[in-house]
Design a protein around this nucleic acid. Structure first.
Length: 848
RNA sequence: GGAUGAUUAGCUCAGCGGUAGAGCACUACCUUGACGUGGUAGGGGUCAUAGGUUCAAAUCCUAUAUCAUUCACCA
């Protein structure tokens, strides 16, 4: 009862409610709590709740930050840090991987705010293009062509809106500190306008051209696609050895694609191939089709592969196209764009590609032209959106020149800082291997229309004027006549590749072309963040566009995150639907702060596995933070931060110096975007602070009558200072709980708008302080191995140590005696060692 | 086949020239006036393998193996 009075006296006037329960334990409880079995209540101020309720608090701060515009961007003269963050493709269910990649960037945004940057951090949604169309087709169960252009686009907008709301809610719940007023959608008129004017700029600079040229074709999605949209897939097929003859001499070609027999335009042999080179110059007779094609020599043929003889078709693969161009071969396209054989295939017209393959092999077997059939497993290129094998087709389409400027793209890539550094190699590799110009035409509906009509008389493309954008050529009419005088136009029906709009996100952010733009502020942007899989698309195309538009890099820094793995070795992805964790459920169960803890773990650029253990570890950390804050709050009730302090206690100086060391490392890591490593050292310090420092200082804080008010004040100053600084550093990871504690203990403004200020410390105590803590550890160990409580008194202890440690010991003697419950102590100076505990005698519990 | 990264305690990972680390799990103990979602300690590792550089290698180099990512190979 007496210590209860003591606490109440110490804290009077600021306690809201104290309750004494039956077991004589003090409890601090929040307002409006019903107490049962209480002896009395006292009125005062509200304190931190006994248990932190994440559901209530996270909802509260989410709303409050919105009301207070905590994360609003306004040009105010401060240095700007701008982030170009990937607008998620709105093509399906949100999964845990989304949280992972966005959280780390978000933490960087928060960190930069703490460093007094004016942070420009927008959010976008990539809702146009094939991914959205596929989603709608899947949901409706019908193909776009069956629904009709107008109706289909309406459905796309409805569907993407619905998913966007879910994304927005998720990111808000996760505490993403974006300025939602800056949010953009890639289907909005503003974005369409920017994409179209970007296109027109490239046309005017001769970097975009319209040409009938072979292109990659997906006969599932019925559109041409770009090299970057290819994926490889392992499939089982057969290697068919087929007999041909040349002027009566038989020779064999091995092929996986016998259905291309009707499309053969030439046969190739390596001129150095001693076995077969005599055939060069002759004519090959194609069985079944009964046509003759020339046998030609080219050193691209590998004599060791298959039979060393290759058939060249329109078009089986990349090499066919090269030869077609190089030798000016005839064109014999046998596939329709829907994936059927056409009239060029003669008797096989109307069959699907796979049916034709079977039928042709059967017919060849009848003619006894098949030598053998081997089963074969090999990789084929498929369209990443649908997984279907790609074909080649020839249609008139828009391309952006890549081949002629590869050197420049490489140079621009080198000007950018890549984090981690080795990711720049992926970019380099990709650029070096680019073989096609970028085909941006898509024979689809839901995308940015080309601002182009074609003159019916002279066939020339007729472009919209910049001031008329955005235009939809299917609805709008050109505002002038063609240079030939005609006013009859055919509108362009194709739409742009989704990456043609995604690659202008820096332009969207800077409101390119509008009057109140941010060009000055955002050229170049500070940071791009994305996962490694889209270096070849998003990063590459954005660099291309920025080079063509401004001849500069789009951003100074790129940070590449890893993936979330479902189980060891399997990447979580939308298409595989292998994510077992529902993001919303996880947030409800664990809190956004804890999920963020998990998302921050792991190094930049490395994959992480979803781990329940990591969540638990975060949960414990936050629980500890809450409790230590409660403890500190309790001891700060009579603290006046204006009170002058002449001298700090030894361990106070020690922990402040430790803190300062840690903060420097934290800043180093965060400047390298190593979010996980920054959290690591912060966490390590925090546990040291709780387990060692707080255990030492608590005696002083509780018993000023024993230690003196000065020593208590020194402790109060230290816990007050360090807790604030810790909360601030932690706020980038745990925005919700740190805000709650900060507003309760410090000021009623947001911790997220505070700025890191360097702490001036004395480092004299750093080293000796660590030794003293080691000594404390040894004494605790002694008690532990004697199976006795840490409160057991040490009746006698004898320590040998060098002068520095002895001096430190003497300076901190009161704290040490109290912490270890030492009755009698003997210190012996010995220069040759650090320290040695010669003797410990424990006074065993009198109860025992 | 090329490129890039990884391989450290049962699990998840940090360390990246100077005596092997953390959390979880396991074991024993401690109910200490913030916290039992706590505390103190203990057991557990030839740091994938083999060479090399160095006074010193988990750390640097070279091979090999395995895994992952990525590009290419579709004759």
């Amino acid at each position: 009862m007496s210590f209860l009075r003591k606490i109440i006296e110490g804290c009077l006037g600021v306690i809201r409610i104290y309750a004494l329960n039956i077991r004589e334990k003090i409890k601090v409880v929040p307002r409006n709590h019903v107490l049962i079995g209480c002896d009395f209540l006292l009125e005062g101020e509200i304190m931190l709740e006994n248990k932190y309720n994440h559901l209530i608090n996270e909802e509260k701060w989410m709303k409050k930050w919105k009301e207070e515009n905590t994360y609003q961007f306004k040009v105010d003269g401060r240095k700007i840090f701008s982030i170009d963050t990937p607008p998620p493709t709105v093509n399906g269910k949100i999964h845990i991987g989304h949280i992972f990649s966005y959280s780390q960037t978000e933490m960087v945004a928060r960190y930069k705010r703490l460093r007094d940057f004016n942070v420009f951090y927008p959010f976008g949604f990539d809702d146009n293009g094939l991914p959205s169309e596929r989603l709608v087709e899947k949901e409706v169960g019908k193909k776009a062509s069956e629904i009709g252009r107008e109706e289909f686009n309406k459905l796309c907008i409805e569907t993407t809106n619905r998913y966007e709301e879910e994304f927005k809610l998720l990111f808000s719940k996760m505490g993403v500190s974006t300025d939602w007023d800056l949010a953009y959608k890639t289907v909005s008129p503003e974005t369409i306008k920017i994409s179209q004017s970007s296109f027109l700029d490239l046309v005017s600079k001769n970097h975009a051209y319209h040409k009938e040229s072979p292109a990659l074709w997906c006969n599932e999605c019925l559109t041409s696609i770009a090299q970057a949209e290819l994926e490889t897939k392992r499939v089982e097929t057969t290697f068919n050895y087929i007999n041909f003859d040349a002027d009566g001499e038989k020779f064999t070609i091995a092929t996986t694609r016998p259905e291309l027999l009707p499309a053969i335009v030439a046969v190739f042999i390596n001129p150095d191939d001693s076995k077969n080179k005599h055939l060069i110059g002759k004519e090959a007779n194609i069985p079944l089709i009964n046509i003759k094609v020339p046998i030609m020599g080219d050193d691209k043929v590998d004599p060791e592969k298959g039979t060393g003889i290759v058939m060249c078709c329109t078009f089986g693969d990349q090499t066919d196209i090269e030869w077609w161009k190089k030798y000016n071969l005839p064109l014999k396209n046998i596939f329709s764009n829907e994936g059927f054989l056409n009239s060029n295939a003669g008797a096989y017209e109307g069959l699907r590609i796979k049916q034709a393959r079977k039928k042709i092999v059967e017919d060849l077997q009848e003619l006894e032209c098949i030598v053998k059939i081997e089963p074969l497993e090999h990789d084929v290129q498929v369209h990443e959106r649908c997984g279907k094998e790609i074909e080649y087709t020839i249609i008139k389409q828009w391309f952006i020149d890549l081949i002629n400027y590869k050197e420049d793209f490489l140079k621009k890539g080198e000007e950018i800082n890549w984090y981690p550094e080795h990711m720049s190699k992926r970019y380099k590799e990709w650029v070096e291997n680019v073989m096609w110009d970028w085909c941006i035409s898509r024979q689809r509906y839901f995308g940015v229309p080309f601002p182009v009509w074609y003159c019916q008389e002279c066939g020339k493309p007729h472009f919209a004027r910049i001031e008329d954008l955005p235009v939809n050529p299917l609805v709008d009419k050109p505002s002038s006549v063609c240079s030939c005088g005609s006013s009859n136009f055919i509108p362009e029906k194709d739409v742009m590749d989704t990456w043609a709009t995604s690659s202008v996100t820096p332009l969207i952010n800077m409101r390119y072309g509008s009057e109140n733009n941010y060009e000055k502020e955002l050229r170049p942007m500070s940071l791009r963040s994305n996962a490694s899989e889209i270096i070849r698309t998003w990063d590459f195309y954005t660099i291309v566009k920025s080079f063509y538009h401004f001849n500069e890099i789009p951003w100074e820094n790129v940070m590449i995150s890893g993936f979330v793995m479902a189980d060891k070795g399997e990447k979580i992805s939308k298409s595989k639907e292998n994510s077992k964790q529902e993001p919303f459920e996880l947030i409800n169960n664990y809190s956004a702060d804890v999920i963020r803890y998990w998302a921050a773990s792991g190094r930049l650029g490395t994959d992480i596995v979803f781990s329940e253990e990591t969540l638990l570890r975060g949960k414990k950390l936050l629980n500890k933070l809450w409790n230590v804050s409660k403890f500190i709050e309790m001891h700060l009730q009579d603290y006046d931060k204006e009170t002058k302090l002449d001298n700090l206690e030894y361990f106070d100086k020690w922990i402040l110096a430790k803190y300062s060391e840690m903060e420097k490392q934290y800043i180093n890591y965060m400047d390298e975007y190593e979010v996980g490593l920054a959290l690591n050292i912060l966490e390590k310090f925090f546990w040291n602070f709780c387990d060692n420092y707080i255990e030492i200082v608590k005696h002083r804080l509780y018993r000023p009558e024993e230690f003196g008010a000065e020593k208590r004040l020194s402790g109060q100053y230290t816990v007050y200072t360090i807790l604030f600084k810790l909360l601030q550093k932690m706020s980038i990871f745990f925005p919700f709980m740190t805000e709650e504690i900060f507003r309760e203990l410090y000021e009623d403004t947001s911790i997220h708008n505070t700025v890191i200020e360097e702490l001036i410390v004395n480092k004299d105590e750093l080293e000796t302080g660590d030794y003293l803590n080691e000594i404390i550890g040894h004494v605790r160990g002694e008690k532990s191995s004697n199976n006795t409580s840490l409160k057991t008194s040490v009746s006698y202890i004898e320590i040998e140590a060098n002068k520095n440690i002895i001096n430190a010991f003497n300076e901190a003697i009161m704290d040490l005696k109290a912490t270890l419950f030492i009755n009698e102590l003997s210190l012996i100076e010995k220069e040759s060692i650090n320290y040695n505990i010669n003797k410990i005698e424990l006074e065993f519990d009198k109860d025992k």
